[in-house]
Amino acid sequence: MIQIFSRIAARTPRQAISASNHHIPTLHLSEFSRCNQPHQGIHNTINPMTPSNATSEAQPAPLAGGSNHNYPPSVQATPDIEKKYVHRVYDAIAPHFSATRFAKWPKVAGFLDSLKPGSVVLDAGCGNGKYLGFNPGCFYVGCDISPPLVEICAGRGHEVFVADAVNMPYRENVGDAAISIAVLHHLSTEERRRKAIEELVRVVKRGGLVLITVWAVEQEDKSLLNKWTPLCDKYNEEWVDPSSPPCEANLLVC
């Protein structure tokens, strides 16, 4: 796992947070913000538990971030591969998923604990809502693209709605903090991951905080992989179309 913790201090830079190291080879967290003054603002900390080669650097290419970013249609329209292998799977396994997702990751808990009372916390991809309401002095709003998972959250009394993390229906600057916990790796292209990060930045206020965690493709500690179950033939038959590329043993249920 890798965590990226950013304070959207001035939201001015065209500064890159380059996490294109070996931990997450397909995720380049650059062009993070909306405005044009370089070398200001975003202070990022890569979690020291995963030493990385991450560096910050200015990007020479012009950009128009936020809602003005001119993405091709494929960026925000959900690709079929996500509908099939992410949305339908979570819809199908929601009760089991929820029953097994209760442990709160200490780094996330620490982040949430640090927020001031009265903070508005926006959880993009809230799953079964295990972080919603973490500290009672804050106001949590969660969204997820899986209606069965959102229903579970609502049943627990949380404020939730169904939406896509790539295209969140918030007005700008409403959040004191936004969290994206184990979500970005569900998005199938770098552009969609980038857009999802820009949405997190858009919806938090200046000076707000964004916490992102994603799974690393290459875990340094191989023992961490032991808790995951390799996809067996049964699931391959049920979830994978015969015309799909062959699945190898490195596909994991996570």
Binding site: P73, T78, V162, A163
Partner: peptide, 20 residues
């Protein structure tokens, strides 16, 4: 119009409503 059912708004967009 985005429906609210059982206290939950559904804000998902159709493919042709998504911003390009």
């Amino acid at each position: 119009s985005f429906p609210i059912l059982k206290g939950v708004p559904n804000m998902l967009l159709h493919e042709d409503e998504v911003r390009h």
